[in-house]
């Protein structure tokens, strides 16, 4: 299973656990499974279209990816707010 690492409010919404093991074939599938396991996360990372929110970055093994990126066993997925704001 892939290892998902969460911080800040996402960690709190996901049962206050900073690391979660999730089995999935793509980033989108992984995030949907995370939502099903922790319904409070619903709408915080993916929007209604199934797209990663504009100012959230998802990394697979350190590479910034989009929703359809493949995920393999033992991959490490980081979900982080982008550097933005004002």
């Amino acid at each position: 299973m892939a290892l998902v690492r969460l911080r800040g409010p996402l960690k709190r919404l996901a049962g206050d656990r900073s690391e979660q093991s999730v089995e999935a074939g793509t980033v989108c599938e992984l995030l949907r499974r995370l939502e099903r396991e922790h319904p409070a996360v619903d709408g915080w990372i993916l929007d209604e279209r199934g797209l990663i929110r504009r100012h959230i970055n998802v990394f697979v093994n350190g590479e910034c990816v989009r929703e359809d990126a493949p995920v393999a066993v033992d991959d490490r997925i980081d979900v982080l707010p982008a550097i933005s704001g004002g």
């Binding site: 709408g43 915080w44 990372i45 929110r53 959230i56 707010p81 933005s84």
Partner: peptide, 9 residues
Amino acid sequence: VTSAFYGPK
């Protein structure tokens, strides 16, 4: 509240 990161709530 519309978080720039997490969307409107």
